[in-house]
Design a protein around this nucleic acid. Structure first.
Length: 645
RNA sequence: GCCGGCGUAGCUCAGUGGUAGAGCAACGGUUUCGUAAACCGUAGGUCGGAGGUUCAACUCCUCUCGCCGGCUCCA
């Protein structure tokens, strides 16, 4: 007998080898009917699987979050079957469920286009209507290989050969059979024919490896109900409407120019104003936070990049050298070696440490053309970079500080939801990393200590550390629930040794300092794109390039409007009086709305007589008339608190 | 870089082998207006670029550049 623990803590006994479906039935027939799978010790399994030892069981019903994963996986199989029906020569790659949907990769000589998606969808509906039972078959590995060999499924064969198991599982529905771990729904009719949609076709290398053949990938999405699908599609439309590339053009913030170079951003006056505001805030916090700000050149001699090691391991991402008086100079892809130059400019004492040097350093990296993406991925960008150089004794404190500092900075921009990841070495391949074990252990310990001292929940990413040190990354969640990595805090066990950085310790001997790289916003370009999308272009007042427009009701109010603007300007409010052009008030309001200007001050006969302004917000809310001093007090408070409006 | 799609006026888009269009924006004029678009007019394009097929190419073909969706990469 084996003992299974239910989610409520109750325990039930079963004979060894009981199927999960039988377990569900034993708990309740209603549950068994609604069941689509089960979590066994947290791992998603098929109901037809059997359990042989004590474990925790959680039956997954269509109401469970995991149900969608199963549904999508099954939908991807139905799609694969449909593709095979239409293109019998298609070879199967892999077809997993992913966030919001699924995909399946095919090796198929005929080029699929989006026009084929309709045909494939129709075939899928036919398969769903046929209500084919989905069977789970366990096969010895050898037999599995024979089946795949016979069917010419060379990709699947490769997968099964790598599996370290005695038996593997297949799933079969009608004629279609596929090597698959599962789980799957009981029949094809469990998929709602109105709640899935094939979304796109794309190329994808087999197993993500560029040296391998390129397969054709079909993406799709699937939901329990049509209303869920519709809501999802609506969300995609919303994301598209908020695309920073579109908003930046509409709001006249940033442009790109084919004739002037790819992946290089041009900040227009309004975008530039915002960048200055971002940078000013950044500088203020950095000085308050004990940083010093440094400036370094844009190019450096080849020798420097040889010493740093960049020419060995980062060359592909660097631009070709330029000849300066017979010497090779490279444009910088990173700022670190330059900061090291400053450090090494004279002897450092332990009394000097910690040093915290920050720079808004503009770097250029050769990104491959296919990866460029608006302002999120460019070839020239400004990092909000800093290097913390300290003694081993100071490192815990410094990590704690920088974590706090980063979250505080990001909160200033209105981000309040974070996800923290701790990336550490892959313990299996210690030889891949620079620096001694002892240092790695201490570094990891400092990172963990800092996270735990702050009670931050974080995810440990085994083997995700870069070769020169462990790191903490902070991802922020935007208004649409998307996660973006901004902050990275990385130990560097490579550079200090390469440049022979030292300080004189208390005992008079030379010591090697610790160096931590950190970028908090990441790159200004990327962070700015993120702000644009997060706020949908309607920025908080403190960031708005134009905070107030004064709108005269008629020509008679132009002088008054201008005097109001002048007084606001004197109060350091960014303001314009729209007094040109003889347009109607409605026209001006619409224009201001489209430009997402936070405050509109309508001034007509009534306001002029009473010395007031009528305050309208871009949310369409009308605050009514108030004195200019009252308005200035209001807006200053909003600015001070970094509120939206 | 690779796979697929798309490039027409500043912007959003129509035009599928036979004389390049609309709305908005711009410019000129009229209008002086109370909370999301007043009215009339003018101008604006080697249809991304190069080559080819054709009597004729925005339209078909080849190459190329750029953008978009993926893959890959991301110290």
């Amino acid at each position: 007998m084996i003992q299974l623990v239910l989610p409520d803590g109750n325990k039930m006994e079963f004979k060894e080898g009981v199927s999960l479906y039988e377990v569900a039935q034993a708990i309740g027939p209603g549950l068994a009917k609604a069941a689509v799978g089960a979590l066994v010790d947290g791992e998603l399994r098929d109901l037809r699987e059997r359990v042989h030892e004590n474990c925790a069981i959680n039956i997954v019903t269509s109401a469970s979050p995991q149900a969608l994963e199963i549904l999508r996986h099954t939908t991807s199989h139905i799609m694969a079957q449909a593709v095979r029906d239409l293109f019998p020569e298609a070879k199967l790659g892999i077809g997993p469920a992913i966030a919001d949907g699924f995909y399946y990769d095919f090796d198929l000589s005929q080029r699929l286009s989006s026009a084929d998606l309709g045909k494939i969808s129709a075939e899928m509906r036919r398969i769903i209507a046929a209500d084919l039972p989905i069977e789970r078959l366990e096969k010895p590995k050898k037999e599995a290989e024979e089946i795949l060999q016979e069917r010419g499924e060379k990709l699947k064969l490769e997968l099964v050969e790598e599996l370290d198991m005695e038996t593997v599982t297949f799933y079969q529905q009608g004629e279609f059979i596929d090597l698959c771990r599962g789980p799957h729904l009981p029949t094809t009719a469990c998929v709602n024919p109105d709640a899935f949609q094939l979304t796109s076709v794309a190329g994808a290398y087999w197993r993500g490896d560029e040296s391998r053949p390129m397969l054709q990938r079909i993406y799709g999405t699937a939901w329990e109900k049509k209303t869920d699908l519709d809501a999802y599609l609506e969300r995609l439309t919303e994301i598209e409407a908020r695309d920073h590339r579109k908003l930046m053009r509409q709001l006249d913030l940033v442009s790109f120019h084919e004739e002037a170079g790819v992946g290089l951003a041009y900040w227009h006056p309004k975008g530039g104003r915002m960048r200055v505001l971002i940078e000013d805030y950044w500088r203020k916090l950095h000085y308050e936070g004990g940083y010093e700000i440094v400036f370094t050149p844009h190019i450096g001699r080849a020798k420097l990049w040889e010493t740093s090691g960049h020419l060995d391991f980062y060359r592909d991402d660097m631009y070709a050298p330029m000849d300066v008086d017979g010497q090779d100079y490279y444009i910088k892809p990173m700022n670190c070696p330059f900061h090291v130059m400053i450090y090494n400019s004279h002897t450092r004492s332990y009394r000097d440490l910690p040093l915290r040097w920050a720079e808004l350093g503009t770097v250029y990296r050769y990104e491959r053309s296919g990866v460029l993406h608006g302002m999120l991925r460019v070839r020239g960008f400004t990092q909000d970079d800093a290097h913390i150089i300290c003694s081993p004794e100071q490192i815990d404190e410094e990590i704690l500080r920088v974590l706090d500092f980063s979250l505080n900075l990001l909160r200033g921009f209105g981000f309040n939801k974070f996800k923290i990841e701790l990336s550490v070495r892959d313990p299996k391949t210690p030889e891949k990393y620079a620096g001694e074990d002892r240092i790695w252990e201490q570094a990891e310990e400092s990172l963990v200590k800092a996270l735990e001292a702050k009670n931050f929940s974080y995810q440990r990413m085994e083997g995700e550390a870069v070769f020169y040190g462990p790191k903490i990354d902070i991802k922020i969640e935007d208004a649409l629930g998307r996660m973006w990595q901004c902050t990275t805090i990385q130990f560097d066990f490579n550079i200090p040794g390469r440049f022979d950085m030292t300080y004189i310790g208390e005992d008079g001997t030379k010591q090697r300092p610790y160096m931590v790289h950190r970028a908090l916003l990441g790159s200004l370009e990327r962070f700015y794109a993120l702000l644009v999308e997060h706020y949908n272009g309607a920025f908080p007042v403190w960031l708005s390039p134009l905070q107030v427009v004064v709108l005269p009701v008629s020509q008679d109010n132009i002088d008054y409007a201008q005097s109001i603007a002048q007084r606001l300007r004197a109060a350091e409010i960014r303001v314009q009086a729209w007094t040109e052009g003889g347009q109607t008030l409605n026209y001006l309001i619409r224009k201001a709305q489209m430009e997402k200007i936070p405050y509109m001050l309508v001034v007509g006969k009534r306001e002029q007589e009473n010395g007031n302004v009528a305050v309208r917000l871009r949310t369409e809310e009308d605050l009514g008339p108030r004195s200019l001093d009252q308005f200035i007090a209001l807006i200053n408070e909003k600015i001070e608190r970094k509120e939206l409006l």
